[in-house]
Computed example of a mutant assay.
Amino acid sequence: MLFDPKFEQGTLIKRYKRFLADIQLPDGSQITIHCPNTGSMRHCLFPGEKVWYSTSDNPKRKYPNTWEQAHNDVGDIIGINTGRANELAAEGIAQGVISELSGYASLRREVKYGSENSRIDLLLEDEHRPNCYIEVKSCTLLEEGQGYFPDAVTTRGQKHLRELMEMVRLGHRAVLLFVVQHSGITSVTAARHIDPDYANLLQQAAQAGVEILAYRAQLSPNSAFLAKSCPVKL
């Protein structure tokens, strides 16, 4: 995807109240921007480092600017906006980048499903094969060279794994897709040290037939796209 206009640059001062961040602009002024990330953003917050933000023309928005990307202290680019992960996944499927998910007749988003009142991120449908339910997760936690998910305890993520296992039992195809929005991450594994219940469920899901995939995003202030797959360590 191309960003038009491209993102503008600032310097991170701090993130606070979960959904807000203060940044300094090149002219020395400061603004408050929306932070579209509900996670802990562990190892993604680097005051004094570069950030990039987009601007909305919606006059009803209290904070028209949205935090999109960040630099860490060694120069990696991190995708802060978790909503971009779904867009990248859908685009990657449409363009044939995610070869494991190619060839379906249609793609729908945010479809209700499951016994726990969930919405699947992406649903692939084709009359010649079982439906494919895809849950997308944005991976940005890097520790000692390893990418991890999640960055905080996620009961919602645990629910999604149970729902995917249910879809497999019903005869459908189910996929957990990690979209890696961190240029320093080359493989993904469950963050057992943060959420052991999620790690256990991920192993159960894989054993039950849920497919676990990971694809790295190529990020810049001008564009973002899925580039290639990377290993998932279970």
Rank of each mutant, 00 (worst) to 15 (best):
E116P: 12
I120E: 07
D121H: 07
L123C: 06
L124I: 09
E125W: 00
D126L: 00
D126P: 07
R129K: 13
N131M: 01
Y133W: 12
I134V: 05
V136H: 02
K137V: 03
S138M: 14
C139P: 03
T140A: 14
L141W: 14
L141Y: 15
L142C: 05
E144Y: 08
E144K: 13
Q146M: 13
F149P: 02
P150I: 00
P150M: 06
D151V: 13
T155L: 12
G157N: 01
K159G: 10
L164T: 04
L170Q: 09
L170W: 00
H172P: 04
R173W: 00
V175K: 06
L177F: 01
L177T: 00
Q181L: 14
Q181T: 09
H182V: 06
S183R: 06
G184Y: 08
I185M: 05
S187C: 12
S187L: 09
V188S: 03
T189E: 12
A191L: 07
R192F: 14
R192K: 15
I194A: 03
D195E: 05
D195C: 12
P196T: 08
Y198F: 15
N200E: 15
L201C: 04
L201A: 06
L202S: 04
Q204G: 12
A205E: 03
A205W: 01
Q207H: 14
E211Y: 05
I212A: 02
I212T: 07
L213W: 07
A214C: 02
A214Q: 03
